[in-house]
């Protein structure tokens, strides 16, 4: 049923730390790997080793340059995947009931056997979180690794989304954002976690932690510079003669 639940027992989601992300794309690769080998249709590639490769990904990392009013520009790496919105517009537009938001944990999923591949849910998503798989003809999206997080066959430390598990920088956090006591909620409160495109009214569950203000750079930057000053301004001796001789040639 594509009507949204009035209330979900939990709001599982991600908190992504833009201050810590180094833009290595490891989360992109682990996501592609896990979600190709496990639940649902594999994430296909077209012409993967050719000149024009295209493929389905559930997580992509943009990079932005931010130029403050003064001081140097800053590069921000920006991973983006489904935000599992409370008011998910992708769910209500679905004509078949394939898209749904789970009451128990708030995860937005696609029932692939009901999806007709009309693409309207991808149109309704402001974040580009849904991609139609060119081979399977069904809509693919982040499942929050629903087949990992409850999977008792996995060791406990692996029961989190593949992107979170793999992140070498610790920039991705997973938890229940409806519980104010959870580690992720505390992180959001502490660091001023924010919504993407709040004006779209989607009420995203995933939050982004803004980059911390950069330490002062400027005056201190050339602390060693005096030692690098050229010691001989004027040429003397043999090289001076050589320079002049070559000039005359």
């Amino acid at each position: 049923m594509t009507q949204l639940p009035e209330h979900t027992e939990k709001s599982l989601g991600l908190v992504i730390d833009l201050d810590t992300c180094v833009g290595c794309h490891a989360c992109v690769v682990s996501c592609k790997g896990w979600n190709t080998e496990n639940y649902g249709a594999p994430l296909s590639d077209q012409d993967p080793y050719g000149s024009d490769p295209v493929g389905t990904f559930l997580n992509r990392v943009h990079s932005y340059e931010v130029q403050p009013a003064s001081g140097p520009a800053q590069l921000v790496h920006f991973p983006k995947s489904c935000l599992h919105c409370e008011d998910a517009p992708c769910v209500t537009v679905c004509p078949t009931g394939a898209s749904y938001k789970r009451t128990e944990d708030g995860i937005v999923l696609v029932n692939e056997s009901d999806c007709i591949g009309c693409g309207l849910c991808a149109w309704a998503c402001p974040y580009g979180a849904r991609e139609m798989d060119a081979v399977a003809g069904v809509m693919k999206k982040c499942t929050l690794c629903v087949d990992r997080i409850y999977n008792t066959n996995l060791p406990e430390e692996d029961r989190e989304p593949a992107c979170v598990r793999t992140c070498p920088a610790g920039a991705r956090h997973f938890g229940d954002l409806s519980d104010p006591g959870s580690a992720v909620s505390q992180l959001v409160a502490e660091r001023g976690g924010m919504d993407l495109m709040p004006e779209q009214g989607t009420k995203p569950v995933n939050k982004y932690l803004p980059p911390r203000p950069k330490d002062k750079i400027g005056e201190d930057i050339d602390v060693l510079a005096p030692l690098l000053e050229p010691v001989a301004e004027e040429q003397r001796g043999f090289f001076s003669w050589l320079d002049k001789a070559l000039e005359k040639l």
């Binding site: 833009l18 931010v66 403050p68 009013a69 921000v76 993407l196 495109m197 982004y208 803004p210």
Partner: peptide, 10 residues
């Protein structure tokens, strides 16, 4: 608004 990065021109 898309990125939430508001401390400069994005």
């Amino acid at each position: 608004t898309a990125t939430g990065l508001r401390f400069g021109a994005v």
